[in-house]
Nucleic acid binder design. Structure first.
Lengths: 174, 174
DNA sequence: ATTATTTTTCAGAAAATTTTGAAAGTTCAA
DNA sequence: TTGAACTTTCAAAATTTTCTGAAAAATAAT
């Protein structure tokens, strides 16, 4: 009876980890990183590198690399257990915070660099009456305006979150 | 003099296409697809498969495959030019509409399937007082609630857009 | 029908990304 | 110090994704 129950939970976890990994892939996040995140999300207690290796059947190097990345994203943290030599890891469980972090980081790492690159492109020389030049300058301009606006929207959301969002709005999700 | 001007525009376009391709990659969209999209975005007139092949230096098969995908996403359309045998393609230039489409499609194709998969995972058998089971069920539940809420948010935005958003809010971006 | 033009398909090749595992590096207790 | 326990690094290997190009299929003109 106990055995049956353990099997079912493990099965469900496994299923979730696979799904999460596949979703990550489609969003440009490497499969293993998403799987480690999923594993930590559904683990009641922090896990060591060895635990992760065993559960996901992946190498030590792979665990190390991807855990470091998750720490960088700020959605997993190192947990030191008194009297233990090993490092343990646990994931932020508040899914709103996780989403916030990801959006914020992607903006910072990916959107902002591109935006500043686009800035330079507005200085195209040439006849402003040429259809080609006009379409180019307009398109770049529109993308910039859009991205800047979206960027501000994200900032607003994050700022709000830091005040009362988690306490108030999150309750709507519960 | 004319030559100089053409060079600069071409250079700027090239730059934009490369940037857009790189950004796409990081977001799980294949590089070529993003590049074709970028090329069409900054082209005043519709382009044929041959035009795209030449400008991006890629094969016919590659063009065909990725243009089909862009058509599927609904952000590029086929343009038939009277008296011409070839098919031409042009991109939706309203960047708000493009963003809307992408968000909507990603939701439909990627988020919804995962959500329904998560549904099945809530039926984990076992002692509801076990810490492991509790953490698992809670986490899955929170993700579902969050994703459902976000999903509704997207729907709302899309529905609004179909009424007055493009006409009204878009002006804020211009 | 026949032929010319254009589009689609898809197996194999190429490129890009991810993973491994062993060696090097750290850290800490004795 | 030494060495055991643990973490990090990174070149090479494995895997996954993307691309090519030629052949097949479709389409339209003659």
């Amino acid at each position: 009876m106990f055995y049956l129950y353990v099997m079912k939970l493990q099965e469900a976890k496994q299923q979730f980890i696979q799904n999460w990994g596949a979703l990550g892939t489609q969003w440009g996040i490497n499969r293993t990183m998403a799987q480690i995140h999923a594993l930590l999300l559904v683990s009641a207690d922090p896990l060591s590198a060895d635990d992760i290796m065993t559960q996901l059947k992946i190498s030590r190097g792979n665990v190390n690399m991807n855990v470091r990345e998750l720490l960088d994203w700020g959605i997993v943290e190192k947990v030191l257990i008194p009297g233990e030599r090993k490092e343990y890891f646990s994931a932020e469980k508040d899914i709103w915070k996780v989403a916030m972090r990801i959006v914020k980081e992607r903006k910072r790492r990916e959107v902002e660099p591109i935006l500043s690159a686009l800035n330079e492109l507005k200085e195209v020389e040439g006849d402003k009456n040429s259809k080609d030049v006009k379409v180019f300058v307009d398109t770049i301009g529109d993308i910039q305006k859009f991205a800047n606006q979206a960027s501000k929207g994200v900032d607003g959301l994050v700022r709000m979150d830091e005040h009362w969002f988690t306490g108030t709005l999150l309750k709507m999700f519960k």
